Every structure is written in C-alpha cells, then in structure tokens.
Amino acid sequence: MPGKSWTVASAARFAREARMSTVAHLQTAPIARQLRQHKLTRAYAIHRANTGSREAAMDLLFGGLGYKRPYPADWAEAAELLTSDEARCLAAAELYVLTPQMCDVVIAAAQGLTRDDLQLLAEDDLPSPTGLLVLPHPVLVRSVGGDLGDVRALCWHPGQFNVPDPLAADGVRGLPGVRIAVFHDTSGPVRPDSFLELVAEARREGTPLPPLLLDAVRCLEFQTQRATDPHEVERLASAAQAVDGAYRKSAEMMGQDEGRLLGEYASGSEIDDADDSFAWRFLYAFWRLCEQRIAGVEQAETNHAARVIGQRAGLSPDVRVIRLRQRDERAAGEPVGRNWQHRWVVRMHKVRQWYPSEQRHKVIYRGPYIKGPDGKPLLGGETVRALVR
C-alpha cells in the first residue's frame, strides 16, 4: 500500500490512538449501534436462509456469540448489548502491532491452514487472554458473500460457543473458546457508496467514525470434537452469497456503486475467504508463530505523553511489537562474500506435531526465516504468500 514508511514509533502511536478513539465511539455513538444492528440482521438472514428455522438461526447467531436464552427482545437491544460488550473487551485488550514483514509471514501461514487445523486450538495457544492485533496496513479480503473488506485489526477475548442441549439443566451446553472481533480500516481503500453515506451520517451526528470500524464478531471453540462438515460449510457459503448478493443488487438498483476502491489495486490480489474462516486462521497462525519463537516480541517505547493520555482514558499505553526473527541460515558452500541485493523469506510448511506430554497435536511451522543482508529490500507480498502449499 502506498504511504509513509512503517516505523515502530508510528505503529505504536496509531495502535494506541486508534484503540482509544474506537472504544469511545463504541461506548457512546448511536451510529455504532445502528451499524451493529445492520450487521446482526444480515447475519441472522444468512443463518435463516441456511437453516430455514427462526429458532435455529437465533441459536446459531446469539449462541455463537456466547449468549444464552432468553435472547434480546429486539435488534436494537441486541445491538446495544454487543456494541457495549465489544467496547469493554477492546478497552481491556493488550496491544500488539505487526511489522510489515511479519504480517506477510502470518498471511502466508494462515493460507496454509484449514478448518480442521483450527480444531487443534487450545486456550494455552493464546499469548494473552485478551489482545488487539493491529496490522501495518489494510489487508484486502474477499468475503464468502462476495464483498471486499480492508481488515486492519483483530481483537480476541475469552468467550464460549453455546449450543442447545436438552440434557443440560438450563437447556444449553457451553463450549469454552475465544471470541474474535474483526475491525476494518476506516481510511482504507474500500469505499462503497453505502460506506461513504455512513461516514457522512456519522459526521452529521457529531460522532465521526473512528480509525477502526467493528465488522464481524464470532466465537471459536477450543479443541472442538465436532468434525467439519464440508456440505454445511458449502450451504452456509451459498446462503451468504444469496443474502449479500441481494444487498448489492438492491444498492445497484438505487444507483449506488458498491465496488469502489481508492489507491492502487490489482484485481485478484485480494485474499479469497471462501469458507469464512480467514480471521480465525490469521489469528491462529499468529498465535502459533509466537509460541514457536519464530516471532520476536519487543516492547515499544512509551513516552510520557502516551502514559498521561492512557491514564486519563483508563487504557494501558503498552504496545508489543511482533517481528520476524532474523536467522543466519547460510547454505553449505554458499559464497561468503556474495553481494545479495535483496532479502527474502525462505519457504515454510506446516506439520501436525504430536505432544505426548499433553496428549494432543499442535500445528508447527518449519521455517520461515529471512535470508539476505539487513538493510536490503525484502521480496515479500505475493511472493511470500506463494511460498505456502
């Protein structure tokens, strides 16, 4: 993406300020509730189209967010509940920022994961109980429903997936897990007319949109024993495509342009989220890379002004910077004095490693590491992503 060069100081400052503004917006802005109501009714429509049952759709929607019956009485109450909860979780989250190189590696690792790999996720995979991971730039993702989004941050905190169970005392079985929220970049390149109208309305109401715009919220179970049903995934994808396609068609009939993008963009360069799991896979890859120490963690410098502002807002100013560890991996017989002009990421691949002491499998990545001299340009982006099979 074009723009200023990435630095630790600027990334840490953006993460602090973006989190602070977004928390305040979620806490108070009516338009944040209006947007959440729209997102909830869309998600309900997809579940209803998939299941054909109102009751089943409500269970999948609200149970999947960790809520129990009785569910909110109406969509306005549901939007208030979810928006307020996410504001509290965002305020409590520990801040992480990715370097551009590490972001490329996480994307590559995520694209090598499957839904079956996600079933290995356990609570001790998380580097902290809560977290907000801020990316160095928007990552363009084509949703299962066909819409293009610019993902800029992901937040996680404890949650559970509630499923109906007639044998349970309260009729619900809670499955421990993690609740994940996806945030889009308000200043990102995806600029459909519906979004521009939202921006204008927020300004008229005196509550301009914050840097991070809350999009999807869902729970992911820990070590689920439920096998992935490819037919169910396909049915859900078809329902999403039908619902989102109808929204786009309606907008087009009213003369709206829902495909506008600003800046440099090449068709096909976005990530295709065909099974609606990219956010889960991205975070799981990030967590696994952190545990394997492929990722190096350092604390960003916190100046006096950042501490004062954080104290006034009741938010921690601490930011952890996640880098790709540099390794000296000179191949046998490689000329010592060779004048390399670039750095590059050496191929990585995943394996499912059995841990006898824990009696479970974990995803392990062999590699990656960077070759080439410090200070030289990194051959990354699509080149890195193509290294994963």
Rank of each mutant, 00 (worst) to 15 (best):
V141R: 01
G149V: 12
A122V: 07
C155T: 13
R36S: 11
P192L: 01
A239L: 05
R327K: 13
G268F: 01
R352S: 10
Q292D: 13
T28K: 14
A76S: 14
V163E: 00
Y355A: 12
P368V: 03
K39N: 14
G372N: 12
D147V: 06
P230G: 04
L95A: 08
E301S: 14
G337F: 06
E232K: 08
S238N: 14
E329W: 10
Y44L: 12
V217M: 10
A15H: 03
R325G: 11
R173Y: 08
A49F: 09
R260Q: 07
Q160D: 14
A91V: 06
A78C: 02
Q353S: 11
V105Q: 02
Q359K: 13
V199D: 08
V346F: 13
I370E: 07
A240S: 08
A76V: 13
Q119M: 12
L82P: 03
G314F: 08
Y247K: 12
T28R: 15
F14I: 11
V23I: 06
L214Y: 03
V144N: 01
I322V: 15
Y247A: 11
R385P: 04
A169G: 10
I294H: 08
Y247F: 15
W287F: 15
N50A: 14
A305L: 14
P138A: 00
E205M: 15
A332Y: 13
K68H: 12
V106C: 14
V351F: 08
A110D: 02
A168Y: 05
G112T: 07
S143F: 01
P211Q: 03
V217E: 00
E197R: 15
P377G: 07
